[in-house]
Each structure stands twice: as C-alpha cells, then as structure tokens.
C-alpha cells in the first residue's frame, strides 16, 4: 500500500446524505473478478445525468470527495472503495461514515476523514461557488484546508499510522503467528468445523423454468 501523508486536489461537493454503496457502485458491476478497472462504475446510476457533479468539467478531475452524513452505508462491497480509487479519489470527507466502508477504505489507502457537519457545509459553499477549488488533506496534522477554511478531521490512530506507513495488515498479523497457533490449540472441541462435511442426504433439485 502506498504511503499517505498529504494530498492536494480538486474538491468535489456531493451534497447528499446516506450515499449507500449501491449508489457508489450498483450490484451489476460486481461481477468482475479483478481488483481494478471500476472507474466506469462509480456512481453509475447518476453519471447519466448531465447535471451530476462529476459530469461538470470543473469537477471531473476531482480527487477529494466532500459528501454528506452516513457515507458508504449498506452493502459491505469493497468495490465501492476500488471504484472511488480507480476514478482518482484519494480522500473522502464526510460528517459520518458507515463502519464497514470506513474499514475498507483504511485497508485500501483511501482516506476516510470525518469532518464536522458545519465544516462540510462551509467547504461545500466554497466548492460550489468556485468550482475547481483545491482541497488539501494533511493526515499528519489531521487538517483539511479549502480556501479560507481550515478544519480538523477525525481518524483513529491505528488507521492513521497504517496509512502513513503504507502497511499491509496481513503481514502485521502474521508477525504473531505463534500466538494464533497457541489460541487454536486451546479451542474447544464443540466448536464447529466445516470439514469433514456433514449434511442432509443429497436430493435432486428440480430446475425452475420461465413461465408465460
């Protein structure tokens, strides 16, 4: 994962609350088995609307998304983070994020910065009155700068550290491999195992056919 310290780029005001992950990337785009190439799927249902913010020239090269509360609710699909990253976003600012989305962002190097609603409103006003204005996100100082607005943002210490160091979670965990083995040795026998497989008798399933 690339290290993240500070980023400056065009801010994109997305004046909506409750942008769920089905809006960020609809389910039909989740059939791909790759981890990249999702830029066309980002906000797919809204991209057809010429007035949608990303369809406006001044914002199309945006890399800092400024959204309303409860961004990333709903489905756990990490594709939502991949789509934002593939489009070119490096950071999302919102007053509140859904837990799973925030976690997924941290794993993928997309900064999910929690900014107070009042500050989001101020940043929206600047970005809307002067499209193309750049926003600077400083992870070390935990600040956002847009025009004359300087705001603090929240992010948990551990995610901040991992983002700044560009660390891979699995590698970190495997440093404690012996502790995992110790834990496994103590595991109670009643806890289930999927193998060897136990199940009810195999019965043939009849295929349903189209009607009409």
């Amino acid at each position: 994962m690339e290290k993240f310290t500070t980023h400056t780029g065009v801010g994109v005001p997305l004046r909506r609350n409750n942008v769920d992950t089905d809006q960020i990337i609809p389910a039909v785009y989740l059939k791909r088995v790759t981890r990249t190439g999702f830029e066309d799927a980002l906000f797919a249902a809204w991209r057809g609307d010429p007035s949608f913010v990303l369809n406006q020239e001044a914002y199309s090269s945006g890399s800092v998304l400024v959204a309303g509360a409860d961004f990333g609710t709903g489905s756990s699909r990490e594709h939502a983070v991949w789509a934002l990253k593939d489009y070119g976003f490096k950071a999302v600012l919102a007053p509140r994020f859904a837990d799973i989305f925030r976690g997924n962002s941290g794993k993928q190097g997309l900064l999910a910065a929690q900014v107070a609603q009042e500050d989001i409103e101020l940043i929206w006003k600047i970005l809307e009155s002067e499209p193309g204005t750049e926003v600077t996100v400083d992870l070390e100082a935990r600040t956002v700068i847009c025009g004359d607005v300087v705001a603090q943002f929240q992010i948990d210490d551990y995610t901040r550290w991992r983002l700044m160091e560009g660390l891979d979670d699995i590698g970190l965990t495997l440093e404690h491999e012996s502790e995992i083995s110790d834990f496994e040795a103590q595991r109670q026998p009643w806890r289930p195992k999927t193998l060897p497989a136990k199940h009810l008798p195999a019965v043939e399933i009849e295929a349903a056919r189209p009607v009409g």
Partner: peptide, 20 residues
C-alpha cells in the same frame, strides 16, 4: 458481522481479524 474483501483475504490467510 460483514467484512470487506481485504478482510476476507485477511481471514483466509490468518483466521483472525484486527478489530477496533
């Protein structure tokens, strides 16, 4: 609880998850 794909990989590889 639900997890993202990076966490799926983490659990496959380690059978654990770091959780806040």
């Amino acid at each position: 609880f639900g997890i993202g794909t990076s966490e799926v990989e983490h659990v496959l590889a380690t059978q654990t998850l770091p959780l806040a």
